[in-house]
Design a protein around this nucleic acid. Sequence first.
DNA 1: GTTTTCATGTAACCCGTTACATGATTCA
DNA 2: TGAATCATGTAACGGGTTACATGAAAAC
Lengths: 217, 217
Amino acid sequence: MRARSDVLEPAILGLLNEAPMHGYELRKRLNLLLGSFRALSYGSLYPCLKSMATRGWIVGVDSPTSVPPHALSGKRARIVYQLTAEGKEQFQQVLSSSGPTSWEDENFDVRFAFFGQTDAETRLRILEGRRSRLTERLETIHQSFARTRERMDEYTLELQRHGLEQAEREVRWLDGLIDNERGVHRVRTEGGGRPAVADPAAGASGVAAPNNEKERG
Amino acid sequence: MRARSDVLEPAILGLLNEAPMHGYELRKRLNLLLGSFRALSYGSLYPCLKSMATRGWIVGVDSPTSVPPHALSGKRARIVYQLTAEGKEQFQQVLSSSGPTSWEDENFDVRFAFFGQTDAETRLRILEGRRSRLTERLETIHQSFARTRERMDEYTLELQRHGLEQAEREVRWLDGLIDNERGVHRVRTEGGGRPAVADPAAGASGVAAPNNEKERG
DNA sequence: GTTTTCATGTAACCCGTTACATGATTCA
DNA sequence: TGAATCATGTAACGGGTTACATGAAAAC
């Protein structure tokens, strides 16, 4: 429901779970992750890091700029943040929690971005949740569409038509991913249930599969 | 930049410019207009109406429920809002103002939805502004894409690839609309420059034109 | 040497949601 | 008569942005 809550924190946890980082770099990575447009402001990042530190999920360590570049002792301290044990636990919990909020646009994106750090079961659960949420939307739009078509402006109509098409396309995209995930899931759970994307070949071909129609365009 | 500011007010102005309405119905129309999901809350609608009334853009008129349904005198007053002269002026100003904010996602959607109440020139300006904003984005993503491809998670990559594709598709959609608008523009400005969509035939075929490829799918 | 980029923060504000409160009308 | 829907609002809160403040390192 909300715009970003449940989005910023998970994203930070996920990025720090990949590698420790200082705030400035974290922001750049976050911008890439979250829709890649609309720069996240420091005014929300730093306070968020602060509160996460207070809660014990992360710790910030003052760190001089690597090896002193030109003779002088490295003094300027950047604060490099890293997950604590609690933070890692929290992240795993966020990943596997598939509450209704997880299906929403940006929340889904973040969950999806960190699929590489989840198990196939959770991935499937989230993908399918997202899918049913989308089709639910489509249903709603179709209905109100049918009810109010005549009363609507040509352009409003066109806008809605376009939105509908985009949503339908996303459903198809999800279908591809789900199919793929099911295949991987079956194979992997037989073999131990570790994340499947650790294997580059399976990940690359599998994930990209549903979209190669694009090459034709 | 912002999520909704510059979105809610224009949308209200636009809807009230089509027909006077009371808040409850306004909300339904707004939900349809603004992404059609995520219901707008009364907690933001009514205060907004209030402030718009204070500024003199709209007036709320107590109105009994049409004709009394079963003998009793209609007492229950719904507040029907309508634009004042200033409100109409403000709306026209919003429509024709093509500042950078107009290219943003939701702002664009609202502007687009009320294209029927604008002239072809403004429509073109907004469509082209939106287009260049989108391609700008695409450029940015492509760059960071090339720079950081190796360091990225398979799923993050796929998510970005998908986003890229959606954006590219929207650019093509815009191209169709722009082409169409240019045609209409040329014809119409010769003939007087009135809104083109007032003509059902031109509007319907014209606006829908770039997308009839979808029928094949 | 000056500008640009890196780097970290704070305080005021904006806009929206949640939860609450209230009451009339319509339908079962 | 009692539940669902229509209809209008308010107060507290949440999460984000803007604008401000500061300073070191790198590039020109």
